[in-house]
């Protein structure tokens, strides 16, 4: 039972980590990806649809990535190139994507009589490692996306703190002028980072449709993009912090699912479903010091 809970926690934290890691990189350049909820949903829809039509989950992930890229580029065009307000733009895009996905779902599939499903991503047990008692089933009997986060966290940390690229990214969010004067285009850094974030967030969205449930509904993201967004804050804009944060939320979510399954509890089901959301509020309030990138959310006007 405990193994089951933790294993599920790792599983459920996967998309949150992909989302918050993208958010860490984007926000370090000074751009909040407030369209993250919409990008998740777009990825979920595109991933499911492509997988259903082609019968290939790989194609599903590819299309999820592409659709995430498109939405992110639209967002980046508006906030980086046109320098519009990030929160307003993101909110508008999120509403747009919600409507768009409902519409496209109807256009492509009509009103199906039975629920449409695909076979979700298979769990792959890693030889030897998965045999370790307790640890093995929790960490090494997961799907391919979950394995990717084991690589992405240290990689993200390495890029951010040990490479020139990371230095440029961190400097762009702190003092874009310094980056500009060093002869690097602030807009390009921001645009490219947000675009790559879009690819990763698209895949994260597809996790909910084809990576886990095997179906698509328009309310399936249900604020999880925003949770990833909040985790980036809670993790202090650090990949390791984001990793710890997502594990906590993954656990909350796994706990809620477990409680739902064993409906014999005294407390109402809805309380457990709302657990991750309550946790977001509690943790955000209780977090004491933040290392906010000083130019987060501020557009940069190049002098030349």
């Amino acid at each position: 039972m405990l193994i089951n809970l933790f294993s599920r926690a790792v599983l459920m934290s996967t998309p949150l980590l992909l989302g918050s890691l993208s958010e860490v990189f984007s926000e370090r350049t000074g751009v909040m990806v407030t369209a993250i909820e919409g990008i998740f949903l777009m990825g979920a829809w595109a991933g499911f649809t492509a997988a259903y039509i082609t019968g290939s989950l790989a194609m599903g992930l590819l299309y999820a990535a592409l659709s995430g890229l498109l939405v992110a580029m639209l967002y980046a065009y508006i906030v980086v190139t046109l320098k519009q307000h990030q929160i307003v733009t993101g909110t508008a895009i999120n509403i747009l994507i919600l409507g768009l996905c409902s519409f496209l779902q109807r256009v492509v599939f009509g009103v199906p009589l039975s629920p449409l499903t695909v076979e979700p991503l298979q769990k792959i047990a890693i030889p030897l490692l998965s045999k370790i008692p307790f640890i093995g089933p929790i960490f090494f009997q997961q799907n391919i996306l979950t394995y990717s986060i084991y690589v992405l966290v240290p990689l993200g940390y390495f890029i951010l703190y040990k490479t020139s690229l990371g230095l440029v990214i961190r400097s762009t969010g702190e003092n874009p002028e310094a980056v500009d004067v060093s002869g690097i285009s602030v807009s390009r850094v921001r645009f490219v980072t947000v675009s790559i974030s879009g690819i990763i967030c698209g895949i994260a969205g597809a996790f909910y449709s084809i990576g886990y449930l095997g179906k698509f509904t328009t309310n399936m993201i249900g604020g999880r993009g925003w949770i990833a967004f909040a985790i980036c804050f809670l993790g202090n804009w650090n990949p390791i912090g984001a990793f710890v944060g997502t594990l906590i939320f993954g656990l909350a979510e796994a706990f809620a699912i477990l409680m739902q399954a064993n409906a014999s509890t005294i407390l109402p089901n809805e309380l457990f479903i709302s657990l991750p959301y309550i946790l977001t509020i509690v943790l955000t309030i209780s977090r004491k010091s933040f290392n906010v990138p000083s130019k987060l959310g501020v557009a940069y006007y190049e002098e030349h």
């Binding site: 490479t163 020139s164 230095l167 310094a178 980056v179 060093s182 002869g183």
Partner: peptide, 11 residues
């Protein structure tokens, strides 16, 4: 600050 924009790859 000094190496910003003046280095490549791993630092």
């Amino acid at each position: 600050n000094i190496i910003l924009g003046n280095v490549k790859g791993k630092i």
